[in-house]
Design a protein around this nucleic acid. Structure first.
Length: 118
DNA sequence: CGGGTGACTTTAC
DNA sequence: CGTAAAGCCACCC
């Protein structure tokens, strides 16, 4: 199964925020998901959930991050259009055991909350 | 420096 | 269910 993207980084980043974002995403366990908002909060920019998605698209798309495990607050796969095919992201999650309800991840069962001390 | 653009979130109607 | 607006902040003109 393919969990990671291994292309080259488009750019280097020295941003503390982004590095923390990557560190957090890297820790998401198999079969769990987390949200942009939680990551942003743990990375230090409480209200900048947009930056998390932006960071993934610009930098991480390419590192070895399980970025399919990041969904929005409602469990919707808002980033699926960046996975090649519209169904790829969901397939990856389902292959890890994540269940969906009405095209959304069942967050009550599969939400993972980052609890790290950065 | 300023305006546009988001893998977002929240509130409001 | 839907749309709108505001706040958010790095990046790219």
């Amino acid at each position: 199964m393919i969990y990671f993207f291994t292309l080259k980084l488009k750019k280097e980043t020295n941003s503390d925020f982004f590095n923390k974002v990557f560190q957090i995403v890297e820790m998401i366990p198999c079969g769990k998901v987390t949200t942009y908002g939680l990551i942003a909060q743990k990375a230090g920019l409480k209200s900048s959930a947009r930056m998390v998605g932006w960071a993934l698209n610009s930098y991480a798309f390419s590192t070895r991050l399980p970025c399919h495990r990041v969904v929005n607050r409602n469990g919707e796969l808002t980033g699926k259009k960046y996975f090649g095919t519209p169904t790829m992201m969901r397939e990856l999650l389902e292959s890890e055991g994540v269940e969906f309800v009405n095209d959304r991840v069942d967050l009550k069962k599969f939400l993972w909350t980052p609890e790290i001390a950065l």
